[in-house]
């Protein structure tokens, strides 16, 4: 009953698109240095890339496991300790690769859109 919109074709596709793009977006946010989880969440929220936070944790966890991200815990004056992430060299490489993939996709999609609008 909550989130019955999950089942609509639109929602299903949207979820898949967001999931596919999320890794790229996270890497983008980390390209300039160390960022902690809550900041990431705030930025992604702001960009309307995530609705709920739950999806982010497994992603960060997997990227870290695969060696794309490094992290460290830091004490914080207000509130609990924070987990800061940054890109490893492999992560930077992945970002560059994903950038190419994204732009290729973007171009393809744009082309498709133009073609169909000509009809």
């Amino acid at each position: 009953m909550n989130k019955s919109s999950d089942d609509t074709p639109l929602a299903q596709s949207e979820v898949q698109m967001r999931k596919g793009l999320l890794a790229y977006c996270v890497l983008l946010l980390l390209r300039d240095g160390k960022v902690y989880t809550s900041e990431l969440i705030r930025a992604l929220h702001h960009a309307e890339l995530i609705v709920v936070e739950g999806t982010l944790y497994p992603l960060l966890n997997r990227l870290a496991k695969d060696g794309m991200l490094a992290y460290e815990w830091q004490e914080s004056e207000q509130g609990p300790p924070r987990k800061y992430y940054w890109l490893t060299d492999e992560g930077k490489q992945l970002l560059a690769d994903l950038k190419k993939v994204y732009h290729t996709l973007h171009t393809s999609v744009t082309t498709l859109e133009k073609e169909s609008s000509h009809e």
Partner: peptide
């Protein structure tokens, strides 16, 4: 719960 989302969102792909 609203912020963090459904438990199944925590599942990896």
């Amino acid at each position: 719960k609203e912020q963090l989302g459904d438990p199944k969102d925590f599942a990896e792909d």
